[in-house]
Design a protein around this nucleic acid. Structure first.
Lengths: 217, 217
DNA sequence: GGAATATGAGTGGTCAGACCACTTTCAAAA
DNA sequence: TTTTGAAAGTGGTCTGACCACTCATATTCC
């Protein structure tokens, strides 16, 4: 009989331990040697489990200090998955499109929520446009994703943003302000249709611009 | 100086090896002992890298046989991530909603593609409805996801389907056939609006039914 | 007394070698 | 020819040993 993998049990054991001892992100978890003794397995088995969790970004290890429960930021996941499965152009395109799927859906969700549409954030974005602040694009779209209230969708979006490079980073141009104002206006009016289409127009324009930059390089 | 993690280098080395030797999904990769000798590291280091890749679902190991490049199906990822980060009801709800986001987007994409809308598959589904085949729901939605052409979105959807349990599995009922026919009709007419709304209605109904089942249990 | 320094305990990182359990293969025995 | 079984190869696990690093403490020096 093929035994179930030991290190997978360990992964679950560690999970249980974290829950029982109420270990919070940033806290230290028992040392490898302790875990080995407690769970009655060899240290190498413990390490295989820990390395797996580390690659998933769930824990963080610091030599000489210990192993810590991660606050779920640095996913090696991105690095590894991208080298393994995102090699061709079709995949790049899929990433981009999937990202947009989440953005469009998020903005539609927001438009269905009156309170969210009347938040002062949107006005503050209008102001920032006038002042020509940079990083505005990223902040705006992220705000939309956050306010949509779906944390999983947000998480996926953040992942995809890492995969797809970030065309939202550079300074905004004059041509663009109008498109962004359209999006903001649609939100204020709670017009999901218009918000989605305005966002699509803006994104399409961004994509064209970023291609232009690539050609220059 | 804190050395960069050795096992992460190994992960990339293995990646490179797979690419150079043109190893395809399902093929065997060199044994742990071979890899250790080739890459000039200890076997335990190799194993830490392999275990990580296994947990991500990128490889598959069979005792006595060897290690194989996976065809990306059984992600332990699901198991682990779900026990680590999907504990509360809000997360469950997010999974369900995110899944629907992808389904709606997929069906809209299809409606924008004339060829896809005229495929004979849709008629075959109508026929299967009459014959009251089971597993029809899952097949239909999956077909939609596949034909949308976005492989990443499909992959995410498959993941979410595992997370969210599968209300598509049971036998279809009479009440339901009409709703499904609405969806199919909208596709045939290439009416993205109607397709999306019909699908939403159907999904909402499914969700209500699955809740009812839960209450019975 | 206060500040710089040395020490030691604890931790993750790596390695080598040893078994075990399992699968496959193939030669020897029936 | 068929069956059997021994050997080789593989992943799974454990042990014990170093190394490199961090941190707290004790020690030394001014």
């Amino acid at each position: 009989m093929n035994q179930p993998k030991r290190y997978l049990d360990i992964v679950l054991d560690i999970r249980k331990m974290i829950s029982q001892e109420n270990i919070r992100p940033g806290d230290r978890i028992p040392s490898e040697r302790e875990l080995a003794e407690t769970l009655k397995v060899g240290r190498s088995t413990i390490r295989e489990a820990l390395r797996s969790l580390e690659l998933l970004g769930l824990i963080e290890t610091r030599r000489g200090e210990g192993t810590f429960l991660s606050d779920y930021r640095n996913h090696q996941l991105v690095e590894v998955l991208s080298t393994f499965i995102l090699q061709d152009n079709q995949s790049q395109k899929d990433v981009w499109e999937t990202r947009i799927i989440h953005e469009i859906s998020a903005i539609q969700t927001i438009c269905g929520n009156e309170a969210a549409c009347q938040l002062p954030v949107w006005d503050s974005f209008s102001k920032r446009i006038e002042e020509e602040e940079s990083f505005l694009r990223e902040d705006l779209v992220k705000e939309i994703m956050v306010l949509s209230g779906n944390r999983l969708s947000l998480k996926i979006w953040l992942l995809l943003a890492q995969y797809s490079g970030n065309p939202y980073k550079s300074r905004i141009t004059m041509d663009e302000t109008e498109m962004i104002e359209d999006v903001l206006a649609a939100i204020r009016q709670q017009d999901a249709e218009k918000a989605a289409s305005s966002l699509k127009i803006w994104i399409a324009w961004l994509q064209k611009e970023s291609k232009k930059d690539d050609d220059d390089t």
